[in-house]
């Protein structure tokens, strides 16, 4: 077992374990922190796959921005039930019920099973080329040439999402009531 594989195993375990805890954690804030950990694990996996730029983006966007936003939203929410996150029963009790336990479990397991089964029979030819040593540069070049239009569209999507989020959460003076 070489060192790379060992690192892969550990990172995978961290990722999946944290992901599992996201689902099972009692408090929503804890779940958010586990989510951050899971994202860090994925960033590590990116590094192993020679996607160093992406790993950095992963850390910045997911861990730095999205998770933080989730935690802020939870903590600053004026709604008691979101803040405490104690609205639901414990995970292990719920898993026994049909609607919250058995059926989702069966569906998720079946999904994973089928996908893995399909992967086994797929015949992808790995290209044994040494990875690009300078991914940041090639990503940047591709992004501003080949993928320029998607890039611009993405910026528009972000703008729209930002405006939408602001409008949605803006406190309206209740003129109707």
């Amino acid at each position: 077992m070489n060192l790379q594989l060992l690192a892969f195993m550990i990172l995978s375990l961290v990722t999946l374990g944290a992901a599992f805890k996201v689902i099972t954690a009692r408090f929503i804030t804890h779940a958010a922190l586990y989510l951050a950990l899971s994202f860090v694990g994925v960033a590590g996996l990116f590094l192993l796959l020679n996607a160093d730029f992406l790993a950095a983006v992963q850390l910045l966007v997911y861990v730095g921005a999205i998770t933080t936003m989730l935690i802020f939203a939870v903590m600053l929410s004026q709604v008691e039930e979101i803040r405490q996150g104690a609205a639901e029963e414990g995970f292990w009790r719920r898993i026994l019920s049909a609607r919250f336990g058995v059926i989702p479990l069966a569906v998720a397991a079946a999904l994973a099973g089928v996908i893995l089964y399909l992967y086994r029979f797929a015949n992808w030819k790995a290209v044994p080329v040494a990875p690009d040593p300078n991914t940041t540069r090639s990503i940047g070049q591709a992004m501003f040439t080949t993928y320029l239009i998607p890039f611009e569209v993405a910026s528009l999507v972000l703008l729209v999402a930002m405006i939408g989020a602001i409008v949605l959460t803006m406190k309206k003076e209740d003129r109707s009531r």
Binding site: I103, V107, A110, L111, L118
Partner: peptide, 14 residues
């Protein structure tokens, strides 16, 4: 419930 149906549909489709 809708989401469960959706994913079950994906599994069956695959």
């Amino acid at each position: 419930s809708y989401a469960i149906t959706l994913f079950a549909g994906v599994v069956i489709g695959l």
